[in-house]
């Protein structure tokens, strides 16, 4: 796997307001979670506008009923990160279906109290590492995706 160093990340993050802080946090996270990679790509907002943003894309290791699964996720960092929370999605493969529920909508968007209460101050520093740990715990109780049964057609979601 290619190693991304902090210097290269800073170049990719040149339009980010807190570039150094963001690059350092990404470097720390991908050193711990080796199946996440920083990817620069176009993100389309609800109003149809689009910006090139950094995401952490890959899988998170989640234990569920005695097995470890690699849950595919994509965590988008806005250009005001870490003062705005990431926008997070599960990214099911064609062999998976989303399990909508309290924390996941039909588009795979992730909703967590940690994201809703995101705050980056001297007293309280929400960060990617904390967010990922929360995701792993929540997903180990309620996986956001399931393997599609082989007899079902694709592109269905399972209602909780």
């Amino acid at each position: 796997m290619a190693v991304v160093n902090e210097g290269a990340l800073k170049k990719m993050l040149k339009q980010y307001k807190y570039r150094d802080l963001t690059a350092r946090e990404i470097t720390n996270v991908i050193s711990q979670y080796k199946d996440l990679k920083p990817v620069m790509d176009a993100y389309t907002f609800n109003d149809g506008s689009s910006r090139d943003l950094m995401s952490l894309t890959g899988t998170l290791p989640v234990s569920y009923r005695g097995n470890v699964y690699n849950i595919p996720v994509c965590l988008w960092l806005l250009d005001m990160y870490p003062y705005n929370p990431p926008i997070c999605f599960v990214k099911p493969t064609s062999a998976m279906m989303i399990k909508t529920g309290k924390h996941i909508d039909a588009n795979g968007k992730i909703y967590l109290p940690y994201l809703h209460e995101w705050k980056h101050t001297h007293q309280s520093q929400s960060d990617l590492y904390g967010l990922i740990q929360v995701m792993i715990v929540v997903f180990s109780e309620e996986p956001p995706v399931y393997s599609r049964p082989t007899t079902q057609p694709p592109y269905q979601t399972f209602q909780a």
Partner: peptide
Amino acid sequence: LNGGAVPSAPPTYT
């Protein structure tokens, strides 16, 4: 070879 872990998910329980 550079792709990281293969995505996987628990089986569906009915």
